[in-house]
Amino acid sequence: MEGMFYSTQELWTWWIAIYLFLGGLGGALVVVSGLTNMYVKEHKELVLWANISSLIMLSVGSFMLFLHLLHHIAVINVLNPMVLINKPDAWISWGTQFIVWMMVWSFVYTYPYLVDSKFWRGIPIIGGLIGLFGWVGNLSLRFHKLIGWLAVINGIGTVLYTGLLLQSFPAVALWHNPGVPLLFIVSAFSTAMAFLLIALYVFIKNPEDHGLKVLFERSDVILIGIELLIIFVFFQFTTYGLESARYTAKILWNDMGWIIGFVGFGLLIPFIIEFRGVTKGWKGSAPIVLAAILVLSGGYLLRHYFMYAGVYERPYPAINSTHHLQMDGSVQTQ
């Protein structure tokens, strides 16, 4: 039983990558905006941008996941909070609850700002609905910090869960290691910083936010730097690791989309641009906005390649997989 077969999977592909990307970004946005608003600088517009965007991202991501379920009605089993007692070992159970409660608490936390927002109150129907439920805003303000922390805790859980979900699959060396949750956490917060920088530079455009922009740029430089180090660790782990990890290395490090797209344009170039911004500064906002867009693109590419490059090792070929890997890096298609 010496001959082993190596194949990737076609069950969870680009749509799961989008879900993981939006989940990580959405969760980190709630955490960063909540903590910034509570402890750094009260900033209603930032919270509105972060939390409403997060709500939309998580709604889109979760809906994509829902569409791909085989048995849609049975989703009720994970939406029930009792799932945490019945299935505490399953990260999808935790993730579903973290996402649902993060969306609820972050929306309640944001509600007083929606009530005060001319933009949101000016939208037909939605503006009227916001006014109709004004009491939610009053209630939220009475317990604002508590609600903020409930949103932040569930946001941290959402960010953490995306990596732990992949880590819970033992058959794939690329996924089943402690580096994955760490990488996804760092990437999630880096993309959140990038998203907030775009919001501050392009949409909010308040000169009083200079300090906040500097804080986010510095944080993002540090996060991208750490992410680069973790990617180097993964290079070592896959290149000199278990056999299935070596097949992963063949996939990733022979793919220009990974090397140039993710490592180059998604990490190195934004790192250089933001590092220059932090040390010497830029005259305009364009370089930082460009770097932020690249970081966001890189955030998706990371998850995309992680899903496609996970390699299973089995003593027989996968029945329904059409891709079987050869050690020279080529893919044999059935």
Partner: peptide, 21 residues
């Protein structure tokens, strides 16, 4: 079958490729 929502996490986790839709 009634409780399964078909997320396929089991198929992803199985080292033996034993699960199918």
């Amino acid at each position: 079958d009634e409780m399964c929502m078909g997320c396929r996490a089991c198929a992803m986790a199985c080292p033996y490729d034993a699960r199918y839709d």
